[in-house]
Amino acid sequence: MKKSEVAKLHFPRRFSAGTVAKKTVVYVVLIALCLAFIVPYLWMIVTSLRTEMAYNSTGFTLLPIDEYGNISFHFENYSEAFSALDLGTVFLNTMIVCVVNTVANLFLNSLAAYAFARLKFFGRNSVFRVCLFSMMVPGTVMLVPNYLICDFLGITDSLTALIMPFLMSIYNIFLLRQQFLGVDKEIEEAAKIEGAGVFRIYFRIVLPLVKPMLIVLGITTFMWNYSNYLWPYIVNTDPALRTLSTSLAELMGADYDLTVKLAGAVIVSAPMIIIFFVLQKFIIGGTMAGAVKG
């Protein structure tokens, strides 16, 4: 076989030239976009492990190098941030608020949602609609009014103020009601015939059937509480009642090295991001399920 002939043999291209070019462009754009999301986080983590002096003396870098160019990890930023944030107390505060609110929220909202879905009572639909419309008032508008009522009730400057105003959420009730409507009625009817009372049917039989939605809503409520800044800032002034967000905001404005501040940001945001990576499926799935109505 002549070599020149052999050279002419070629495998078929899977895609035409045009398609390859198009696909490359798509990937390039998407990866560039990804970088815009990854680089800031990387930079934040890396910078939090350096000293301020090192940071000021070097240009752009994504490695935790010191002023001489050696890689060194300065975990003291983190211990400094720890105490600057008063992490012990603050974390405890945040956890109390998050856990109590989430649990209470899920329980009470599902009670109401079940009532709207399955229980017949006078004025059910009107009450639902009224609540639906009125509780769609945006948060910023409710800010001052809620502050006034808390002041009036005397619960300002307390953890209660962080929990109570968010016990019910019409969004959660709406979604849970949707789920309850989808439960097979016959299961409830069978239980009724067996003699179970309404609450028992709700709690022991129907509620477990909507577990996926409960998990998703639980996660989103927990995360919302965790990140909440504005309300704790407005309603609590006692430093002992700071949450992670308010404490971090204080750290932000105080006179600390930027490396310490970034360390603080990492400490505060890391738990949620880790939970996100672990429970990705639920979080992304839940977002899409809830908001597709559009």
């Binding site: 800031p40 990140s227 750290l251 932000m252 501040k261």
Partner: peptide, 27 residues
């Protein structure tokens, strides 16, 4: 990609602000 783009949505708001504040500083 969906996961990467979604990371800011699960990052504490204040932390994002700290991050950007430092990123947007003159240095």
């Amino acid at each position: 990609f969906k996961t990467v783009f979604y990371i800011p949505s699960v990052t504490v708001g204040v932390a994002i602000m700290v991050m950007w504040q430092q990123m947007l500083a003159p240095d």
